[in-house]
Write a protein that binds this DNA or RNA. Structure first.
Length: 416
RNA sequence: GCGGCUUUAGCUCAGCCGGUAGAGCGCUGGAUUGUGGUUCCAGAUGUCACGGGUUCGAAUCCCGUAAGCCGCCCCA
C-alpha cells in the first residue's frame, strides 16, 4: 500500500473540526487587531532562507527540502514564513503604506527532522508580522494578541517567557565575553555543552542538564550586557505588558534559534506537550530586511504558533466542537424520498445539518440515525404524506410527535 | 543525524519456554408487517509490517529493511 510520507499526515474528522475552530478563532482575533491575511508561495528561492533564516541554523544547515528546478534554479519548500513575508513586504513596497503593515498567515511549513510527538515534517503554523516600526508598543500589542488567540481557543495553563537578545551592537560583545568565561569551565560541563561552546555559545545557556546549572548560573547574563538602547526598549516592553496585566517570566537564557532575532524574543510553553513544550515562538527582527540585501528597512516583530501543537492541547483539554446531525430524515417509498430531498434542501439552506436516508427499511434508517448521533429523526411515509404531518422523533427522549412542514421549518430555523 | 520501544482482523490488544491465530469494540444479517439506543442469535475479515536465516515445523528464535511511537539534537 501507498502510505503518507514519513512525518506527514492526514487530518480527518472529527479532528479537522478542531483545526477549523483554531483557525477561525485566530482569524477573528487577527481581524479585531486589524491584521490582513497574506498568502505567500510555499516554494521560494533557496537563497531567501539561507540569508533570511541564517546559514548557521539547523533549519538551513540540514532540515530544508531543497531541489533544483528544470531551469537550474535552486528552490526550497518553506521551513517558516517570516522570511517570505518580509520578501513580499519589500517586493510590493509595503513600506509605502501608512502606518504599520500588519499581516497574518496560516499554512504548511516543511522541515526534514526526525518526527516525534508534536513534530512533523509537514507542520502548520499560524503567524503574524507587524512590520514598519521598532517601537516596543508594537511588541506588547503583538504579544497581547497571541495570548488572546490562545485563551479564546479555550486553552489555559500556558506560560509566557520573554527575553531580549540584544542587537548587533551589544550581542557580539556579549558572545565574546561568554566565550572568554567558558574557556575556564567548559571542560566540567556535559558533552553537548562542550560542543555548543564552539558552535553557538549562546546555546550553552539553554542547557537543561542539572549538573551544569551551577556553572551556568555563574555565567554572565545577556540582560546585564545590553546596550542602552536595547535596555530601554526591553524595559518598555515589560512595563507595557504589565500595564496590560499580562503575566510573563523573564528568561535571560531564552535563546531563539533563528539568526534574525534581535531585542525582544518570546515563547509560550505548555505542559501537555511533552518534550516539544513550545506552542509558539516569536521575536523582533529589525535587521532582517538588510540581511536579505534590501536598502529599505523593515523593522518588525512577529510570532508563529505551532498549529499541530495547539490543536493537540485543545483536544486534550476536550475542545467541544459542534458535530453530528440535527435532523435525520427517513423517507418510506419513492414518492416520499423525492419529497424529502426537497425538504432537506430547504432545511439546509436555513443552516441545519441534515441527512436523508436512502429509501429503504425504516429499521435500518433508525439504526443509522442513532449511529450518526442525530438529535431528531423525521419519518415520512405514505400516511404522513397524505395527512400533512410527519413524525418528528427526539432521539434522546424517544418521544415522537406529529409536525407540519411549517412547524418543522420553524423549528430548525435557529441553526443558521 | 543518534538512541530506546513497538509493528497480530477496520480500532484497542492477547497469544507463556517454537506446532500454521483469538478477544473486546466496530461492521454485516436476523429475533413477523413503518421506529434506533439495552439484550439475544448468526456471520465476514488477517500473505501475524516486509525480506532473509535457523528448524521437521516460526506470529513466536536470529539478522536486515521499513514504518510508528518516545527521547537526544533542534525547533513550532
Amino acid at each position: 500500500m501507498i502510505r503518507a510520507v514519513k512525518g506527514m499526515r492526514d487530518i480527518l474528522p472529527p479532528s479537522s473540526a478542531v483545526w477549523n475552530h483554531v483557525e477561525e478563532t485566530a482569524r477573528k482575533v487577527f481581524r479585531s487587531y486589524n491584521y490582513g491575511e497574506i498568502r505567500t508561495p510555499i516554494v521560494e528561492e533557496t537563497v531567501l532562507f539561507a540569508r533570511g533564516v541564517g546559514q548557521d541554523t539547523d533549519i538551513v544547515g540540514k532540515e530544508m527540502y531543497t531541489f533544483e528546478d528544470r531551469d537550474g534554479t535552486t528552490l526550497t519548500l518553506r521551513p517558516e514564513a517570516t522570511a517570505s513575508v518580509i520578501r513580499a513586504y519589500l517586493e510590493h513596497r509595503m513600506d509605502q503604506v501608512p502606518g504599520l503593515r500588519k499581516l497574518y498567515y496560516m499554512g504548511p511549513m516543511f522541515r526534514r527532522e526526525r518526527p516525534q510527538k508534536g513534530r512533523y515534517r509537514q507542520f502548520f503554523q499560524i503567524g503574524a508580522e507587524a512590520v514598519g516600526s521598532d517601537s516596543p508598543a508594537v511588541d506588547a500589542e503583538v504579544i497581547e494578541m497571541v495570548i488572546e488567540i490562545l485563551s479564546r481557543t479555550g486553552i489555559a495553563g500556558f506560560t509566557l517567557l520573554i527575553n531580549s537578545v540584544g542587537c548587533p551592537v551589544c550581542r557580539p560583545q556579549f558572545v565574546a565575553r561568554l566565550r572568554e568565561r567558558l574557556k575556564g569551565v567548559v571542560n566540567r560541563m556535559c558533552a553537548d555543552c562542550q560542543r555548543r561552546a564552539e558552535t553557538n555559545p549562546l546555546r550553552v545557556l539553554d542547557c537543561k542538564v542539572p549538573e551544569d546549572q551551577p556553572i551556568i548560573d555563574a555565567l554572565p547574563s545577556i540582560l546585564d550586557e545590553l546596550c542602552e538602547e536595547c535596555r530601554s526598549h526591553f524595559d518598555s516592553v515589560k512595563s507595557y505588558l504589565a500595564g496590560r496585566s499580562i503575566a510573563f517570566e523573564v528568561r535571560p537564557r531564552l535563546v531563539r534559534g533563528l539568526d534574525y532575532y534581535m531585542r525582544t524574543t518570546f515563547e509560550i510553553v505548555h505542559g501537555a506537550l511533552g518534550s516539544q513544550n513550545s506552542v509558539l515562538g516569536g521575536g523582533r527582527y529589525d535587521g532582517l530586511a538588510e540581511a536579505l540585501g534590501s536598502k529599505i528597512p523593515a523593522p518588525g516583530i512577529g510570532f508563529s504558533i505551532g498549529e499541530d501543537r495547539l490543536v493537540m492541547i485543545a483536544e486534550e483539554a476536550g475542545a467541544d466542537v459542534r458535530s453530528g446531525v440535527d435532523l435525520f430524515i427517513a423517507p418510506l417509498g419513492e414518492t416520499a424520498f423525492q419529497y424529502c430531498a426537497l425538504l432537506a434542501r430547504e432545511l439546509r439552506q436555513q443552516g441545519a445539518v441534515v441527512e436523508v436516508a436512502a429509501n429503504g427499511k425504516l429499521k435500518r434508517s433508525m439504526e443509522l440515525a442513532n449511529k450518526l448521533g442525530a438529535r431528531f429523526a423525521l419519518i415520512v411515509g405514505d400516511d404522513e404524506m397524505a395527512g400533512g404531518r410527519y413524525g418528528l422523533k427526539d432521539m434522546n427522549s424517544g418521544v415522537q410527535e406529529p409536525v407540519t412542514r411549517e412547524e418543522l421549518l420553524r423549528r430548525f430555523a435557529a441553526h443558521s
